[in-house]
Measured scan of single mutants.
Amino acid sequence: QVNQQQLQQLMDMGFTREHAMEALLNTSTMEQATEYLLTHP
């Protein structure tokens, strides 16, 4: 289960819902999730 607010923040940054969910499931903080998305295009 992912934090919906964090998911929305990542989608607002331009990431897809699927990619943002993957990042949130594989990390524990927003900072890590953002870094994950930038390093796993």
Rank of each mutant, 00 (worst) to 15 (best):
1 Q>I: 03
1 Q>M: 11
1 Q>L: 01
1 Q>C: 05
1 Q>G: 12
1 Q>D: 00
2 V>R: 10
2 V>Q: 15
2 V>C: 00
2 V>I: 11
2 V>K: 13
3 N>S: 05
3 N>L: 04
3 N>V: 00
3 N>K: 05
3 N>W: 01
3 N>F: 03
4 Q>E: 09
4 Q>A: 07
4 Q>Y: 02
4 Q>H: 08
4 Q>L: 10
5 Q>K: 13
5 Q>F: 05
5 Q>P: 06
6 Q>K: 05
6 Q>M: 06
6 Q>W: 02
6 Q>Y: 14
6 Q>G: 06
7 L>I: 14
7 L>R: 06
7 L>M: 13
7 L>D: 04
7 L>V: 11
8 Q>L: 06
8 Q>E: 15
8 Q>I: 04
8 Q>G: 09
8 Q>T: 14
9 Q>R: 06
9 Q>Y: 08
9 Q>W: 00
9 Q>C: 00
9 Q>H: 08
9 Q>L: 03
10 L>T: 02
10 L>F: 11
10 L>M: 08
11 M>H: 02
11 M>I: 12
11 M>R: 04
11 M>C: 03
12 D>Q: 14
12 D>E: 14
12 D>N: 15
12 D>M: 07
12 D>I: 06
12 D>W: 01
13 M>E: 04
13 M>C: 06
13 M>D: 03
14 G>I: 00
15 F>D: 02
15 F>C: 12
15 F>I: 15
15 F>W: 10
16 T>F: 04
16 T>I: 10
17 R>T: 09
17 R>A: 07
17 R>D: 05
17 R>P: 02
17 R>L: 02
17 R>Q: 05
18 E>V: 09
18 E>S: 05
18 E>R: 06
18 E>F: 02
18 E>H: 02
19 H>M: 13
19 H>S: 14
19 H>D: 12
19 H>E: 15
21 M>E: 15
22 E>H: 12
22 E>P: 02
22 E>T: 09
22 E>R: 04
23 A>G: 06
23 A>M: 00
23 A>W: 00
24 L>M: 08
24 L>F: 09
25 L>K: 14
25 L>Y: 09
26 N>H: 12
26 N>K: 12
26 N>T: 14
26 N>Y: 04
26 N>W: 02
26 N>R: 08
26 N>S: 13
27 T>N: 15
28 S>D: 07
29 T>V: 03
29 T>L: 01
29 T>Q: 06
29 T>A: 05
30 M>F: 14
30 M>A: 12
30 M>D: 07
30 M>H: 12
30 M>N: 06
31 E>Q: 11
31 E>F: 02
31 E>S: 09
31 E>H: 05
31 E>C: 04
31 E>G: 09
32 Q>C: 05
32 Q>V: 03
32 Q>P: 02
32 Q>Y: 03
32 Q>R: 07
33 A>S: 04
33 A>T: 05
33 A>I: 00
33 A>Y: 00
34 T>E: 15
34 T>P: 03
34 T>C: 04
34 T>K: 15
34 T>R: 15
35 E>R: 11
35 E>V: 03
35 E>I: 02
35 E>P: 01
36 Y>W: 13
36 Y>A: 11
36 Y>T: 08
36 Y>K: 13
36 Y>N: 08
37 L>V: 07
38 L>F: 11
38 L>K: 15
39 T>F: 02
39 T>G: 14
39 T>H: 11
39 T>Y: 03
39 T>V: 05
39 T>L: 06
40 H>M: 14
40 H>K: 15
40 H>V: 09
